[in-house]
Amino acid sequence: MSTQTDNTSNTPSNAPSPKKGATGWVILAFFVIGFGFSLLGGWVGFPNMLYKEVPHPIDFNHALHMDLVFDGCNSCHYFRADGSFSGAPTLNECRDCHQFVMGTDPNEEKFVEEYVLQDKEVPWNIFAKQPDNVYFSHAPHVKGAGMDCAACHGDIGTSESLRPYQENRITGYSRDIWGWEMSRLGEPKYAPRMKMMDCVNCHVEQTDSKGSCFQCHK
């Protein structure tokens, strides 16, 4: 670097620079500015641009329901006789209780008026929704491996209000899948991440094999 020359008299900034190295510092400064700008944009701006917040149709109170039902999560999210899992309840299942407004919660009122009475399914935001080519069965995980719901879905079951739902503008899937931290480092914010490698890592840990394609794809 000592051979670098500078033919201008203006040296930038505060650094006590060697006589002929000022431009080199200018260049370096520009590099650092660019570098910093990238980091800032990439880690702060980018996630906000990539995801958009989608409001929930109804702010569902899991905790409240948990107090009212007998069988915990299974009361509404249950296994069918063929071993398949019901997932989010359908309007008909909700209607068993909510034929008319029972409480004072504005969310319930909205639910009854906008969905039950109009016989319209609620377009729930599904945090764990995977692409169509992904095969996932709850039975091996819950019945076979004895995992509890929170192991993958976090503490949603005890929450009083739904956590925010952010949709990836490119893929259309929930931010939960990638994980809320862009770095995918540290503890997940709400619930475990559900990218392919997350499945694979757990499978490798638990079963010594990442499995072949057909194990999880159709």
């Binding site: 590099f31 990238s38 980091l39 990439g42 980018f46 862009m182």
Partner: peptide
């Protein structure tokens, strides 16, 4: 160089 070190 910087953007390579971001998720972008």
């Amino acid at each position: 160089v910087g953007h390579l070190l971001t998720p972008i």
